[in-house]
């Protein structure tokens, strides 16, 4: 079943384009990572899906409804970010009580156990927590709400490494027990890549890639050798990025090499290895072109 369907959706903020002509579908119970550089439009997309903001153009459907003004979407989705609004007058356990009243699948027991694990007292207020603990609390809410559509917009901001790992593990365990559609956004693809099935890369306000994590990784290959060697070997190939690593050049190239071509690479002593997901992503979003060097070379 398709949970989110996006057709030619654009979003402008007073005439300035935030997202341009997006089209994609997200199927039920898939964990999708939303990645992109700062200002790529990740948050805007997630807020439109959550029904907080309206589209400027195009058709957006969540559970077969326009999410903006939809009670169905609100009742079956939760949006977690680092600017969650809670009434300042309420203590954390009172906030839990409210979640329990509003969300049908809310699991209070799980929420309380997670709070104990992360040593967050229930009788304090959200604003008194440290930044990391605040994010952890929000993340706990997102997991325990068990919403059919769960949206995390940069949930790990401020968390330490241990808390990040614990969060992704807790999310995955609860997902295995209660599968749901999850959208996760982050600047750091590495920390969340293992729990993802699919990846949606937004670049320059458009979709740059949507598909499985491993496909993206396998669609690229890293070649190492001298630049003369590499330019000879990559004739007619689509070069995604060129970096100098010490005395060698590393080029990330779209992976459409035949077995014969691969053998030829080996013969020439060009190292060809698979790329990490992060490198594939960085290459795709033009973060590996050595752009910052150009600033100083001008």
């Amino acid at each position: 079943m398709t949970v989110i369907s996006v057709k030619h959706v654009s979003k402008n903020y007073s005439r300035i384009a935030a997202l341009t002509d997006l089209t994609f579908k997200i199927e039920e119970n898939v964990i999708t990572g939303i990645v992109g550089r700062n200002g790529a439009g990740k948050t805007t997309l997630l807020k439109m899906i959550a029904g907080f903001q309206k589209t400027t153009k195009g058709e957006l459907r969540v559970f077969n409804e326009n999410p903006f003004r939809s009670l169905l979407v609100s009742a079956n989705s939760i949006y977690i970010d680092d600017a969650m609004s809670y009434p300042g007058s309420m203590k954390l356990h009172e906030l839990f009580d409210e979640f329990n009243r509003f969300y049908a699948n809310w699991n209070e027991e799980l929420a309380v156990r997670l709070m104990e694990y992360f040593s967050i007292p229930l009788n304090t207020r959200h604003r008194f927590l440290s930044k990391g603990k605040r994010s952890t609390f929000n993340a706990i809410v997102g997991i325990a709400a068990r919403c059919p559509l769960t949206i995390f917009d940069e949930p790990t901001t401020g968390m330490d490494t241990a808390a990040r790992n614990d969060f992704y593990r807790a999310l995955l365990k609860d997902y295995i027990a209660f599968p749901r559609t999850i959208l996760l956004s982050s600047h750091y693809i590495d920390e969340m890549k293992d729990v993802l099935e699919n990846l949606l890369v937004i670049h320059r306000k458009r979709i740059r890639y949507h598909g499985s994590v491993s496909d993206l990784q396998e669609a690229h290959v890293s070649l190492r050798g001298s630049s003369e060697q590499l330019s000879g070997a990559t004739l007619g190939k689509n070069i995604v990025s060129k970096t100098t690593r010490g005395l060698q050049d590393e080029w990330i190239v779209e992976n459409d090499f035949s077995d014969a071509e691969r053998a030829e690479l080996n013969r020439q002593g060009i190292t060809n290895t698979s790329v990490s997901l992060n490198d594939a992503y960085l290459a795709l979003t033009e973060q590996l072109r050595g752009g910052i060097d150009d600033v100083f070379n001008a």
Binding site: L71, L72, A75, R101, F102, A104, N105, P148, F178, P179
Partner: peptide, 26 residues
């Protein structure tokens, strides 16, 4: 995961009670 269907009336009542609890200071 099956979808939850909540009526407008239910949510208005819950939101009203939520507003009362969170704005008791008012």
């Amino acid at each position: 995961m099956s979808l939850t269907h909540r009526t407008m009336g239910e949510i208005v009542k819950q939101q009203f009670l939520f507003k009362l609890r969170s704005n008791a200071a008012v």
